[in-house]
Nucleic acid binder design. Sequence first.
DNA 1: CTCATGCGTTTAGGATTCTAGACACTGGAG
DNA 2: CTCCAGTGTCTAGAATCCTAAACGCATGAG
Lengths: 182, 182
Amino acid sequence: MSIDVGARLRNVRTTFGLSQRELARRAGVTNGLISLIEQNRVSPSISSLKKVLDGVPMSLAEFFTLDLSAAPQAFFAAQELVELGNPEVSLRLVAAQRPGRLLTVLHERYAAGAATGEEMLAHRGEEAGVVVRGRVELTVGGATRVLGPGEAYYFSSQLPHRFRNVGREACEIISACTPATF
Amino acid sequence: MSIDVGARLRNVRTTFGLSQRELARRAGVTNGLISLIEQNRVSPSISSLKKVLDGVPMSLAEFFTLDLSAAPQAFFAAQELVELGNPEVSLRLVAAQRPGRLLTVLHERYAAGAATGEEMLAHRGEEAGVVVRGRVELTVGGATRVLGPGEAYYFSSQLPHRFRNVGREACEIISACTPATF
DNA sequence: CTCATGCGTTTAGGATTCTAGACACTGGAG
DNA sequence: CTCCAGTGTCTAGAATCCTAAACGCATGAG
């Protein structure tokens, strides 16, 4: 085998921020299998590799087309950003496929009235961003503020936080956080 | 499995004019395995599918990227022709990937002094072509003739035949044969 | 500290793939 | 016709994949 399936899979999995167990759960296989494949201790059957990639999701064609030796891509067209959200809250990730990435940079778009959810978010690291369109209500550790175009934020992600679009139009934010959480 | 690996492999194999046994020999596997894969009776491991495709040859990326549902390609850039020969005798095949192809059309290029080999060729079907550059000596069933640019040939492929470049420059031929032998 | 939760790894054994060889069929030569 | 060489298919058993369950190691909470 000249092609390193294990390294490819590990790259894909970590790029999408999944643990072996989480990917295994989504794919309907065991975490042990993911481990064995990533160590090249087995050469998976097409059917099981297909199942695993469905959990990402990624096609077999994309998987084998990945060029790991290529110099990291520096520029990305809008269409190249990877969509992680839903129709209400669109989260478009910059450089999703870059291995060992330390930053998560997102182009976020909230429909009118949309929010990050009922529960407050809280995770490790720090995050910051700038509003580019519309008006967004940001709550951080008990404090709440409405931000408009050109205004920005920066806080420790451990503080419970939530974004909510309080305007009547869609709003857009460019955000970053570290370490990479997506 | 939504992806039909068996049909894909059978398409690839027949497109290249190989029998299950011949492909198996080149790939270093058994003909039974080729049969089982093509019937989707097994889901091959990546390592064995890789071995099989190496016998064609074709990469895993190409294999999974094949779009069998696409309308047949009608036009081909020079770079899209598939090289089947060697540095001495270059054979560039038109529409190599088209399944169920009845014709083999080649852009052939012979280096000075190069020939199709010591042995005479003989196979089923008929073939024809036109010389576009240089001078080529063509032997068919005991008769020999030197052809130059604009001259052509047509014969039953059962007759033993051989091509030899007798000029001092490279020569080129556009040839066709049916049924598809490559 | 202990405990709980999460991580990747390892292993025995059941499930599947793969090989070696035989089988049946076809087309061409003598 | 027989014989030969080619084709694809099938099957028992060896080899490999895959699962289930455990392990050891971290990190964070109480």
